[in-house]
Simulated scan of single mutants.
Amino acid sequence: MPKPMDKQGIQRLLGSLNYLRGFIPNISEVTEPLRALLKADTFQRIDVQTDHNPLVSIIKKDLHKSSPRLQRLLLRLFKNEIRRVTDVPEKFLYLADTLSRAYLANEYGELEEEVVMLHTIQIQDEAKDQLTMAYEIDPVRQELRNAILKGWAWGNKTAFPIHQGHLGTQKCIDRACQSLYWPRLASEIKETVARCSIYQRHANQQQQEPLIPHDVPELPWNKVGIDIMDFRNKSYLIVVDFYSYYLEIRLISHKKSEDVVATLKSIFAVYGVPVEVIAENMPFSSYAMRNFASEWEFNINTSSSHYAKSNCMAERYVQTTKQLRKKLVPAVTYMLLF
């Protein structure tokens, strides 16, 4: 006998049980829940309790906005009028929680998916033939059918303005997903946006990490900062002591590493060889400079690329020296005129 799904099915089951009442002890108590279902208002109003809070809003949504699995669940519930849906903590949902943990094994294998039909309309045969003919000759349908059966024709490429306006990576991916799909869509869009010079030039920069200050040396000339200053078509080598802030300025003819090394040798010969030198990469990371540091036994620490602030001491004294030079030139000119 199939599972009763309506009032007639329950009446048929009760009739069969009533025929066998002589063999069923306490049949009235056993069949009381079934007989209660035959009352007039039984199938009218029910209360739903769940410990899954999202179901409260899902059940209240329109049926067509739910997934097929939820539609099947809601269609079973909609046989009755749902009076109230409440969210109940799991520890108070005694029966449902017990049955979810102690369920019967499925003895029938995988169940077939149900076909949910929400609306049906009756049409005449002539109208049905017209719809079928229009469906067969529809160009979009034919193109889709050929793509499904034969695969996509990648030979004919179509340009879509995915990166128009030079939007960010996620905006481009969202725009592409609205129109088309291809394998590795997200990764290829990320690579394209990363190569866009206009987007990269105007993109928001990541917040810089705070600058880690240099340790103050214990003795003078133990740690010095070095930089090259360009001023009025001339180059100067700036050397500043981290302990005493003493500044040494030397004019150099060229910025080549050989000239820089020769000038530093003359400075170190007067003030001594430091333990550590802080400088920028070029030309202080060259082979000649590294070889000079190895022979004279001092360490060179160069600043990170595109982050000259790490050589803050020398950079600051370059700025100070330029300001002094600008102020001295008008004063000297005034004295000569006087």
Results as ranks from 00 to 15, higher is better:
residue 191 E to T: 02
residue 127 A to H: 15
residue 15 G to M: 11
residue 243 Y to D: 02
residue 172 C to P: 03
residue 307 Y to R: 14
residue 214 H to F: 11
residue 127 A to E: 15
residue 264 L to C: 09
residue 225 G to D: 01
residue 273 V to H: 00
residue 66 S to V: 04
residue 273 V to G: 03
residue 200 Q to Y: 08
residue 7 K to N: 07
residue 146 N to P: 00
residue 284 F to T: 02
residue 316 R to Y: 10
residue 29 E to D: 12
residue 198 I to N: 09
residue 275 V to E: 08
residue 68 P to I: 15
residue 34 L to M: 05
residue 92 F to D: 06
residue 73 L to T: 07
residue 237 L to W: 05
residue 103 Y to T: 05
residue 225 G to I: 13
residue 139 P to G: 07
residue 104 L to K: 12
residue 211 L to N: 02
residue 305 S to H: 04
residue 78 F to I: 02
residue 231 F to A: 11
residue 288 A to N: 12
residue 173 I to Y: 05
residue 221 W to A: 07
residue 249 I to L: 13
residue 63 L to Y: 09
residue 291 N to Y: 07
residue 89 P to C: 00
residue 63 L to C: 10
residue 131 L to I: 14
residue 35 R to C: 12
residue 84 R to S: 05
residue 237 L to G: 01
residue 71 Q to S: 06
residue 226 I to K: 07
residue 256 K to Q: 12
residue 1 M to K: 04
residue 313 M to P: 00
residue 260 V to R: 09
residue 150 K to F: 10
residue 171 K to M: 14
residue 183 P to D: 10
residue 85 V to F: 04
residue 77 L to P: 06
residue 287 Y to S: 14
residue 144 L to F: 11
residue 147 A to I: 01
residue 236 Y to S: 05
residue 164 Q to E: 15
residue 70 L to R: 03
residue 283 P to H: 07
residue 224 V to P: 00
residue 216 V to L: 13
residue 219 L to N: 10
residue 151 G to Q: 09
residue 137 I to S: 11
residue 166 H to P: 11
residue 73 L to C: 06
residue 183 P to H: 02
residue 157 K to L: 14
residue 118 L to P: 04
residue 229 M to Y: 10
residue 29 E to P: 03
residue 260 V to F: 06
residue 248 E to D: 13
residue 48 V to M: 01
residue 308 A to H: 04
residue 53 N to M: 10
residue 331 A to W: 08
residue 248 E to L: 12
residue 262 A to V: 06
residue 245 Y to R: 15
residue 49 Q to T: 04
residue 199 Y to C: 08
residue 136 E to A: 03
residue 242 F to M: 03
residue 264 L to V: 07
residue 315 E to G: 02
residue 173 I to D: 03
residue 168 G to P: 09
residue 18 N to L: 04
residue 211 L to E: 14
residue 276 E to G: 06
residue 134 A to L: 15
residue 251 L to D: 11
residue 292 F to I: 13
residue 286 S to N: 04
residue 277 V to E: 08
residue 290 R to P: 00
residue 217 P to I: 15
residue 89 P to I: 00
residue 25 P to D: 05
residue 45 R to L: 02
residue 50 T to R: 00
residue 123 I to A: 09
residue 299 N to I: 15
residue 185 L to M: 15
residue 13 L to R: 04
residue 64 H to C: 09
residue 104 L to Y: 08
residue 259 D to C: 15
residue 83 R to Y: 01
residue 95 L to M: 05
residue 189 I to W: 02
residue 114 E to D: 14
residue 66 S to Y: 00
residue 125 D to P: 06
residue 123 I to P: 08
residue 225 G to F: 06
residue 17 L to E: 00
residue 285 S to V: 04
residue 272 G to C: 10
residue 304 S to E: 12
residue 46 I to T: 01
residue 118 L to D: 10
residue 38 L to T: 08
residue 70 L to N: 14
residue 193 V to S: 07
residue 246 Y to C: 09
residue 61 K to N: 14
residue 102 A to F: 05
residue 130 Q to K: 13
residue 115 V to M: 12
residue 6 D to I: 06
residue 139 P to R: 13
residue 318 V to P: 01
residue 139 P to M: 03
residue 128 K to R: 13
